[in-house]
Design a protein around this nucleic acid. Structure first.
Lengths: 205, 205
DNA sequence: AGGTGTGAAATCGTTCACAGCC
DNA sequence: GGCTGTGAACGATTTCACACCT
């Protein structure tokens, strides 16, 4: 099934909200409730949820637990993803430490850096290896995805080294640069300054 | 003039690329060159640039320096924005240290935190104040925008305190939570785990 | 020939409006 | 009466196709 990107983004938000509602012992929500809490139109919420079958009750709403497990199923990965993080700087460490990585769906299993000071050390429980050993380690450790937190000058060469192993299928790029990857590798970027610039642009009307 | 959001995002990328091309003494580029380097269609590049007047030469391309100064003018803010950062954790420090903040267009001028250990200290040249003093300090220091790098539980209350001063016009939210703000305040969010989840979703086709 | 600028067409995503069920 | 599910209308963005300039 083909799902639009904005829908996937909202599904992640629905899951988060529903987890909170389960905690708070809320048993039923309407599309309007969900929309109000997350800043979406009720019709948007209904359309998103309807792509995956009829899950609500007309005249009533959605059962919170039932809907949550439904959304979890949609988002569930085929296996627990194994992630490598390239570039153990301040941003890299902040990400290793991030609460998101308590997820059951993925795990950071190795770090990579060029600095002799970092290679061989352990950061927040994760071992750091040399960039030069990366292709070998990526295969050995069965890593599917890398997150790139290196300076922009290093980004493309790190990508080239990582993709040379042939095991990498996805890259989450935090560096402020466009990278090119082999056919079939998916790249998403999180670019702090681009988001800030967009905000500032609209601030001047 | 009204500019679509995806266009603004690409304009920021064009500026980055053009800055590099100036460094490399490239004097002319075509829309196809730009598109190939950034992963856009040539027609997309031409359309984006044409919104702001005829700047290229038919049969030739765009003069790099001329185009850069044109794009800089489009993105230029009316004044240097003054930014406050709320939450001096690992992620907050990574952002303070980020190369993006060498920009002439904006500057982090103050930090805010609840921790007694951090209040009164200076981090990478930026003074840290108490959350309780935030409304006063935001006015005093003429801060327009805040960046939120607090745990999700604290996000909404920090927003409420910050917007109570009435001087905040924009918020860049790094916390994994939806926040509500008074009419007229613009919010952009950078959510690491949402981007990762989207990537992983498309990895399982 | 080569490359821009741009209306028109195509695509993608959101919102409406209402039939259908609880 | 209230709320879901969904085709149809709408709106936004991308891509095409070609006239026009150098």
């Amino acid at each position: 099934m083909k799902v639009a990107e904005p829908t996937v983004e909202r599904l992640v938000q629905y899951r988060r909200l529903l987890e909170r509602l389960v905690q708070e012992d809320v048993s039923v929500v309407s599309s309007r409730d969900i929309g109000d809490m997350l800043g979406y139109k009720a019709s948007q919420v209904r359309k998103d949820l309807s792509y995956f079958g009829e899950i609500g009750k007309r005249g009533v709403g959605y059962g919170v637990e039932r809907l949550l497990s439904h959304v979890e199923d949609i988002l569930a990965p085929p296996k627990k993803w194994r992630i490598g993080l390239v570039g153990v700087g301040r941003l890299g460490e902040a990400i290793i430490d991030h609460r998101a990585f308590l997820s059951q769906d993925y795990e950071i299993v190795a770090l990579f850096d060029v600095s002799e000071k970092k290679i061989g050390k352990v950061f927040l429980g994760k071992p750091c290896f040399s960039l030069a050993d990366m292709p070998k380690k990526l295969s050995e450790l069965d890593i599917d995805v890398i997150m790139l937190t290196v300076p922009k000058e290093a980004a493309q060469s790190c990508v080239d080294i990582a993709t040379s192993s042939g095991v990498i299928r996805g890259i989450l790029n935090f560096s402020p640069s466009s990278i090119s990857v082999p056919e079939g590798v998916i790249v998403y970027s999180v670019d702090i300054s681009v988001e800030l610039e967009k905000l500032l642009f609209y601030l001047k009307h």
